[in-house]
Design a protein around this nucleic acid. Structure first.
Length: 313
RNA sequence: GGCUCGAUAGCUCAGUUGGUAGAGCAGCGGAUUGAAAAUCCGCGUGUCGCUGGUUCGAUCCCGGCUCGAGCCA
């Protein structure tokens, strides 16, 4: 068997083994999406391309930051070479100044996925943003979109006041909310204030509906030993910094939009401002990326419908 | 060569007026339905550099040694 030539990506483990247990449901009319999940730097893109090759697929991004234009290097978006062979969707479709959230992502992705299916191709949905993926797989709860003005107001209010207000408006939600987590308290309160209804009731309705959704889903969860993942993160960070990440962030300017929160952007901005040296910048990106990868693993562990997949190392 | 200071968790350090020790960071675990690469929560046994001595008891006091930093030659 001839090995197909592969782009020389030092991060790919060379000749990615072919998944053996792809779901085989030829009875289904529209090709069902295949999800490729896993922590950052685990090789999702390479596996997705491999699956797309075999299944007549097209790749759909499910990564919150690869959505943005001008963030390709820092967000480790698939390269031009990768994208040449297989059609890739939803990469670099947002302007750096655009805001994004899981609902917006869902509205973006759903039509793209349906369009791919209408051409009898398999959507291969690839990305590491757990919440965005969850919207795709389980649908949105009937909750209002975030409101920037209200958030600005809530952000300016002491947490203790937010908690007291939530306990007053929706005691049931207050019990379920991590009250030391300002983000979650704000969001719960925002829902109540925006809708005039109880967040707890709206959420209950959704949870009942989604209970059995996972049955029809299939996808893969890439699992790598922690040490190997850490090595890959270090290597990738080095490559990013040596191949344009700094120029990319400089070109973003100082806009404090969504993508200012991306790992790499924060650290490189500090470096460009002269606050930290190059070694510290590198080290901070590596550490932040490792921590992110760990959070992703925690998230995906709960998605038990995913089939674990260990690449041959 | 002499003197001074330091040596405690993976790292940076605190501390014990002698009763075997604790912070930050890292790491590990967890939560997470419209900011998610975000946000938040939980987890601290380590020959207290080595070696003698004093003591009921030494990481702490005393001697020697090793290593590091600084000063004087």
């Amino acid at each position: 068997m001839a090995k197909s030539p592969r782009p020389s990506d030092p991060l790919s483990s060379g000749g990615t083994p072919v998944p053996v247990n792809l779901p085989d449901d030829k009875s289904v009319v529209a090709p069902q999406p295949i999800y490729v999940c896993g922590p950052t730097a685990s090789g999702k893109s390479a596996l997705a391309v491999e699956i797309a090759r075999q299944r007549n697929g097209e790749i759909v991004n499910a990564d919150a930051y690869q959505l943005y234009r001008g963030l390709e290097i820092v967000s480790a978006a698939p390269s031009k070479d990768d994208r040449a062979e297989i059609p890739h969707h939803l990469y670099g479709v947002l302007d750096p100044d655009d805001s994004a959230d899981a609902g917006k992502y869902l509205r973006l992705a759903q039509p793209v996925i349906e369009e791919i299916q209408s051409r009898d191709k398999t959507p291969v949905i690839t990305g590491g943003s757990g919440l965005y993926l969850k919207f795709l797989t389980h649908g949105p709860a009937p909750l209002p979109q975030g409101d920037p003005d209200m958030r600005a107001e809530l952000d300016a209010t002491p947490l203790s006041e937010l908690v007291a207000k939530l306990q007053e408006l929706d005691p049931a939600e207050a019990v379920r909310t991590a009250l030391h987590n300002r983000r979650y308290v704000s969001r719960a309160l925002e829902i109540c204030l925006l809708t005039g209804q109880r967040a707890s009731e709206l959420r209950d309705r959704w949870e009942e509906k989604t209970r059995e959704v996972a049955a029809g889903l299939h996808g893969f969860l890439i699992q790598l030993p922690r040490q190997i993942l850490h090595d890959r993160i270090a290597t990738r960070t080095r490559m990013m910094l040596d191949h344009g990440a700094i120029d990319e962030v400089a070109a973003l300017g100082n806009a404090s939009t969504n993508c200012a929160k991306a790992i790499g952007v924060r650290e490189i901005r500090d470096f460009l401002a002269g606050e930290i040296n190059a070694a510290t910048c590198y080290e901070r990106i590596v550490v932040a990326t490792r921590q992110y990868a760990k959070r992703q693993e925690t998230w995906f562990r709960r998605e038990t419908w995913l089939t674990p997949w260990q690449p041959g190392i």
